[in-house]
Design a protein around this nucleic acid. Structure first.
Lengths: 173, 173
DNA sequence: TATTGTTATACTCTATAACTATA
DNA sequence: TATAGTTATAGAGTATAACAATA
């Protein structure tokens, strides 16, 4: 990931919708800036998760939820927290279970329920991924902050100003 | 998309990596906030693009690039701008061409090159999508700004403060 | 030989809906 | 009847690498 490409891609995305820079509404500009930034970062994070840990971002998200809940979570709750549909949570969980990273348990009190929880191997792997992840972010944000964060700062100010015009009881400031 | 779910998802993502709120580094917090926000918005944008226009977000991105370049773009350039690999650009372009939204042309001066350009139908469809898109964003940002934008504002300030400690010649402010 | 695209492959994700078992 | 998950299906996206045509 290099600086030149970052800036090029950011500039492109700013201009996606309505041509010349500055012509979009503040909401749109903020959104495009966040979209380009998160795309740059997620692409790189995904690449590293895959090459170094054999994991995907959705899997990382799911494991993160379970890591915080030592007793595990029901699949429906996992679905809500990860914003992934029930049916697709089943598939995600199956792949992780096949790798020995989590297990599924059905409690006797309600046999409709399935609770997923990390195995020791899963918890260990997640801890390693999270640690690496933190370091990656520090580096990646350092790459993008000069070109993007300053712009975000400015865009957010405009969205806030714009929001004051049609929101009552604003919680800003 | 409702407010309660937005806030829940945001809160969850903030806590993904290191447990209690506030324990993560500023870069990580900003990143998690942007990730949760963009995920909420992209999910909804993708849903509406599909149901109202039969398009995907990558297709929208690609068409946006071509919309700005009436003479078209070489596939390699399209690949760079959309951050999609060459091989996958071929697939994207093929699907759009099959729908009559763009055409591929090979210039005589260099027969290795393929230039893609929107057809009139493609330009018309993109204009309609972009207009709708702008309205969707205004609504969606209004939904999330109270809970998220204020937090972004605060997080960015911390990243900037943190960056001042290891960047020379900062372009902030 | 280097460049531009294409093809091939394998997996994963996403969306939708029908279905099963349990309550 | 309602709820929790599972299964089925179809389409797209993503990553990698080998390949063909042209320069």
């Amino acid at each position: 990931m290099d600086m030149v490409e970052n800036e090029a891609a950011t500039a492109d995305l700013e201009l996606i919708v309505h041509g010349p820079a500055g012509s979009s509404k503040p909401e749109t500009k903020l959104w495009l800036r966040m979209l380009s930034t998160t795309k740059l970062i997620t692409t790189e994070i995904r690449r590293r998760l895959r090459s170094e840990f054999g994991a995907t971002l959705p899997q990382f998200d799911l494991m993160a939820q379970l890591y915080r809940e030592k007793d595990g979570l029901r699949l429906g709750e996992l679905s809500k927290r990860t914003m992934v549909t029930n049916g697709n949570v089943t598939g995600l969980v199956e792949r992780l279970e096949a790798d020995g990273l989590l297990r599924r348990v059905t409690p006797d009190r309600d046999r409709r329920v399935t609770v997923a929880q990390l195995t020791p191997a899963g918890a260990k792997l997640f801890a390693a991924m999270a640690a690496a992840h933190e370091g990656w972010l520090r580096d990646l944000m350092a790459d993008v902050d000069r070109s993007v964060v300053g712009g975000l700062w400015s865009d957010i100010g405009k969205v806030k100003a714009s929001a004051r015009n049609h929101l009552s009881g604003s919680e800003f400031e």
